[in-house]
Structures are given as C-alpha cells and as structure tokens.
Simulated scan of single mutants.
Amino acid sequence: MTHESSTPREASQLAAHLAPTLSLLRTVAAEGHLTRAAERLGQPQPTVSRALAGLADQLGTPVVAKQGRGVVLTRVGALLCEAAENALRELETGCRGVLDELDPNRGQVLLGFQHTMGRALIPRLISEFREHNPGVRFGLAQGSRDDMLARSRAGRVDLCLVSPVPSDPEWESAQVTQEELVAVVHSGHRLAGRGEIRLTELAEDDFVGMRPGYGLRRIVTDLAESAGFTPRFAWEGEEVDTARGLVAAGLGTTLLPRALSGAAPGTAEIPLSPPAHRTIGVVWPAGRQLPPAVRAFRDHASGIALG
C-alpha cells in the first residue's frame, strides 16, 4: 500500500479548519494542564476540552494525552504546535505592524513630491511634523508631477505634493503653500537690470524648461499662453539646478521659484508684473481611507497654509 502526499488544496482546507484552535493548542502545550491553560485563555475548562476534542475529530487522532494530572501533546499535536508557533509568530509580527500603522504616533507616511520641492519645503514639513510625532517614519519618492500622481493612484505613495493641483473629481487636495515665480535670465540679458518685467517681454526668448509631465512645464506654458504667446522650449530637463546652469551659460530664459540663497552666479532673478505664483497642494485619491499617521501629516502640511 502506498501513501500519496496531500494536495495543496487539502492542506489549505485543513489549515482553515485548524487555524482557530492553534493558539489554544500552543497554550495547552505551554501550560501542560487544561485548567491553567483555560485560565490563561480566559475560557472555561469545558470549552477548552471541547475544542481539543473537536480538533481530534477533525484530524482523526488525539492531539493531547493525559500524563498524571496534566496533559502532553501527542506526536501529531506536537507537529501542529510547532507549525502554530511559526505561523502565530509571523501573524503577531504582522499585527504589530498593523497596530503601528494605525497609531498616529508610530505609523509610516509614503510621501511623493516633485523635484523642485525637495530642497526646502519637504525637509521643513517633515522636520516640523516630527517635532510632535517622532515615531512616525517616512518613505520618500520624487519625480515629475504626472509620475507622482500615477504613484498615488496606484497606492505606491499615500500623499503627494504637486503643483499645479489637479482639479478633477478623481482627487482630493488641500493647499500647502504658494511660491512666487520669477524670471531667471542670464546676467548679460537685455532685461537683467530691471526691477520687474512683463512676461510678454520674454516672448522672443528661447526658454529652458522642464520636460513634459513636470508641473513647472505646465505652469510656464499656461502663464505664457495667458500672456498671448507660446513659449519656445529650446532646452528641456528634470532638475531646477540644471535649468539655472543652462541659463547661466546663456542658453535661454526660464521661470522658477526664487532661489533660497539668491540668484545663481551668471543669472539674474526678476519679479514679474503682474506677479506670478504656483500653488502647491497635498493630494490624495478621492474616497481613499488614509491611515491615522498619514491623516496627521496631511493636516499638518495643509495647516501651513493657514498658519
């Protein structure tokens, strides 16, 4: 007579039946006594005895045997108990992770943002938030506006900071801040010494711009078209520092948020008339339930605009 191995389906069905009693079996093994095990579990002893009897019925063999005034596991019971130890240890680890995630003081925030926000805004927001929430961890992703929205839609980030803020009903958002945009021109540009300029005065210039899909590319295009011209992008890149370098080399003009440390060498920054700004918002998919730590950071980020 040959013995055939059980199929994965049979094993999964047995596991589903046994799962509710595995913690009980582990406790009985640890205590070696039904009364003490029942007390530890907070259950009447008859309930524990019936559960063990039901487990034996399911298996077709006992899982415990009497030994003096106590009980010991049978070979089958010991095999199950070892499996239960491993499974419950993994489950308890997972539960700790879930509890951490649900604790606003211990969770994790997966935050996406555009390249142009990584130098000052993101460090500031996280630093201020962690003053009151030191146990919250962050996972950071940066890229283009379209890339960050795609990651948020797919659930790969919890929140993203983008500009311009999407207006369609697929998204919910809250304003974080506004940044002034200035014309960045070569220091030898014909308008470099001006106190302010109209955007139309740059209509004939070559523009240094972000690639399509980047927020600043859309903002600059919209501002220029509102002023009556279509910007001619002679150079495209992904980083603000690269754009400033191309301007410093005399290869074009661009619109950027003011540099924190002043105009880069070889460039001049000139306010626009009328002034131009970009609005930065924190964005998440409409209707998505956010974990407590994520909600706390969202409220903190959007509170900056109100403070």
Score class of each variant (00 low, 15 high):
Arg211Ile: 00
Val185Ala: 14
Cys160Ser: 07
Phe207Val: 05
Glu204His: 08
Ala234Glu: 08
Arg232Tyr: 14
Leu191Cys: 13
Glu196Gln: 12
Glu179Phe: 13
Ala227Gly: 01
Pro166Tyr: 13
Ala234Ser: 10
Leu191Pro: 15
Pro164Lys: 11
Glu204Lys: 00
Arg211Leu: 02
Leu161Ile: 04
Gln178Leu: 03
Thr230Met: 01
Ala192Gly: 12
Phe233His: 12
His186Thr: 11
Trp171Glu: 10
Val208Gln: 13
Tyr214Leu: 01
Ala234Arg: 01
Thr177Gln: 10
Val185Met: 03
Gln178Ser: 15
Leu199Tyr: 12
Asp168Leu: 01
Gly188Val: 00
Asp205Leu: 00
Val220Gln: 03
Thr200Glu: 15
Gly237Lys: 06
His186Glu: 07
Gln175Thr: 14
Glu236Val: 00
Glu170Ile: 00
Glu238Cys: 02
Pro212Ala: 06
Trp235Glu: 12
Thr177Val: 03
Ala192Val: 00
Ala183Glu: 07
Asp206Arg: 00
Glu180Tyr: 14
Asp205Arg: 00
Val162Ser: 05
Glu201Gln: 06
Ser226Met: 07
Leu223Ala: 06
Gly213Arg: 11
Val162Gly: 04
Val220Ile: 04
Glu238Ser: 10
Tyr214Cys: 02
Leu202Ile: 04
Phe207Asp: 13
Arg198Asp: 15
Thr221Ser: 08
Glu172Met: 03
Gly237Leu: 00
Pro169Ser: 11
Met210Ser: 07
Tyr214His: 12
Val208Pro: 15
Arg194Glu: 12
Glu236Asp: 09
Asp168Tyr: 11
Ala183Asp: 09
Val176Ala: 10
Thr230Ala: 06
Leu191Arg: 09
Ala203Cys: 09
Val240Pro: 02
Arg232Asn: 12
Ala224Leu: 02
Thr230Trp: 01
Arg218Phe: 06
Arg217Trp: 10
Cys160Val: 05
Leu216Asp: 08
Thr177Arg: 12
Ile219Leu: 04
Leu199Asp: 08
Gly237Arg: 07
Gly188Tyr: 04
Arg194His: 14
Arg198Pro: 07
Ser226Phe: 14
Arg218Ser: 02
Val220Trp: 02
Glu196Leu: 04
Ala227Asp: 03
Thr221Asp: 06
Leu191Tyr: 15
Leu199Arg: 03
Leu181Gln: 04
Gly188Arg: 09
Trp235Pro: 13
Leu216Cys: 05
Met210His: 13
